[in-house]
Nucleic acid binder design. Structure first.
Lengths: 125, 125
DNA sequence: TCGAACCCTCACATCGATGTGAGGGTCAAG
DNA sequence: CTTGACCCTCACATCGATGTGAGGGTTCGA
């Protein structure tokens, strides 16, 4: 597929697909005329990138963690330098902290909404 | 306490404390000379704000969900307009999605790190 | 009284993610 | 051959979060 279809299938502006490529998050083959071509796997990849961006991770980090994911179960260690491993460990912990914070606040919001709804259905006060 | 101490206790630049106030996320009393004064509760509040910002929420949303939280168990409904409730519901769902995405990827990173460590301790290949 | 260490406001700069559009090719259908 | 719908690169603009510093007050101890 070309960029337009990938854009539609992922709900992502073409501009950003080119940006993600520029940042090394996705790769695209080129037709002889220069057009980008993608295969189906790019749809999931882009959606994953968007999710991580939305969760607050910068492209620089996403670029590092993506190679560890959605590969087949064979994990291959191309250039796992100690610094990179340390970075990943730190990022894993940061993600855990993010999850904790988000969960706590999400639950609080949900609780609030439930309380409001209950009040609405039983206007006793 | 004044802004310097709050800054130290939260690891947040003064600049940002003023910014959060400007965005309506925190409030500060003023000394007669114009200095901001805070009480202890602001420490937690600022940390919570930072956590949410780090998790990818914009100040505009944080401002809306903060009043639903860390209040005593008495939830008071000052001006719960239907649009605001809808916004909160949407945001709750977005947070849930974020949590899902983060968890999935965090687990994948953790798995990768574990695999690397195992390989390192048993260099059989 | 002076200097250090606070505080204030204001304003411009930076950075990453994203929007927008100019200027220009490619290609299929009419 | 032309038109419309694609695609390309390039570059400037915007937006939110943050950095930085100028210019200036307050407080306090040497």
């Amino acid at each position: 597929m070309r960029i337009g279809e990938l854009s539609e299938r992922t709900g992502t502006p073409r501009r950003l697909l080119r940006y993600y490529e520029e940042q090394g998050l996705i790769v695209a083959d080129r037709l002889p005329n220069g057009y980008r071509v993608y295969d189906g796997s790019n749809v999931d990849r882009v959606l994953q990138i968007r999710g991580l961006l939305d969760a607050g991770l910068p492209t620089r980090i996403i670029k590092q963690i993506l190679p560890c994911l959605n590969k087949p179960r064979i994990i291959h260690f191309p250039d796992a330098t100690p610094e990179m491993l340390a970075t990943l460990e730190g990022e894993r912990d940061r993600m855990t902290e993010r999850i904790r914070c988000l969960t706590r606040n999400r639950d609080a919001v949900a609780e609030y909404l439930d309380a409001v709804r209950e009040k609405r259905s039983a206007p006793s006060s």
